[in-house]
């Protein structure tokens, strides 16, 4: 095994596609979409806010499902995939939790309110951070991995509830997609191109992080093998 192993082309291609789509989205948002009639220019936060929320939900749910799979049949590969999804989910969740309140300040008059969708989003991000902290701080790696995976599974129903929160409990969040809130063709193009670009960007980050975690796992396994060989040699030397 060499540290100079060939780099897979897939993350690079995903990143290139994401860059092109995000660039196209930024152009349409900046130059083609009209400012919202009531909210003005701040409405343009919406395109990336919803795109990052889509990416967050997808990565969190995938991470939760992979964690469940890792609990049933443990595998380093699945563990690395689950962990990379959750890490990217936290990054995108932070983007959602920053861009949302900035939009809300103009739209609702305040940055934060404990309405169902906001509260659930915060809870899911905190849950994912807790999973990563448990994984990072547990002295026994295997136990930390199991507890982290069990906790990560909870992110799946919680993410589904984020999606359904407005329907189930109401709240301040507008129902833009179902309620016909996107007024023009340019707005629809900007919206879907942003969503596609950001989801692809999240996929590229997951691929990159997955590769990095696999490298760390292999290094740790090699270190263990090397220590075992050194111990055996030392034992033979004493005999």
């Amino acid at each position: 095994m060499s540290a100079q192993a060939p780099r897979p082309i897939a993350p690079l291609l995903t990143l290139a596609a994401a860059t092109l789509l995000i660039e196209a989205a930024l152009y349409v948002i900046a130059a083609r979409t009209p400012p919202d009639v009531t909210l003005g220019v701040v409405q343009k936060i919406f395109y990336f806010h919803v795109g990052t929320a889509f990416a967050m939900l997808l990565t969190m749910v995938t991470g939760a499902l992979l964690s469940a799979l890792d609990l049933v049949s443990p595998s380093d590969r699945i563990d690395a995939a689950a962990r990379s999804c959750i890490e990217v989910g936290v990054a995108f969740g932070s983007m959602v939790l920053i861009s949302g309140p900035l939009w809300a300040r103009k739209s609702w008059g305040y940055y934060w309110t404990w309405e169902p969708r906001l509260t659930l989003t915060l809870l899911v991000v905190l849950l994912a951070i807790a999973v990563l902290l448990i994984r990072g701080l547990a002295s026994d790696g295997a136990t930390g991995r199991r507890i982290g995976a069990a906790l990560a599974v909870l992110a799946a129903p919680a993410s589904a509830l984020i999606h359904l929160a407005v329907k189930l409990w109401g709240g301040n969040h507008p129902s833009v997609l179902q309620g016909g809130g996107i007024q023009s063709t340019e707005m629809r193009i900007a919206f879907w191109v942003s969503v596609a670009g950001l989801v692809l960007f999240a996929a590229a980050l997951v691929q990159t992080r997955f590769r990095s975690l696999r490298l760390q796992q292999r290094t740790a396994a090699l270190e263990l093998d090397l220590s075992a060989i050194a111990l055996r040699r030392a034992g033979r030397g004493q005999a």
Binding site: M95, S99, L102, L205
Partner: peptide, 26 residues
């Protein structure tokens, strides 16, 4: 009265700072 443009710029900047931070950390 509430500067929408400043909020818009702050939101996009924050998003890209987080993305760049994550990429750098990785």
């Amino acid at each position: 009265p509430v500067p929408g443009g400043a909020l818009l710029v702050a939101a996009y900047m924050a998003m890209w700072v987080i993305a760049a931070g994550f990429v750098g950390w990785t």
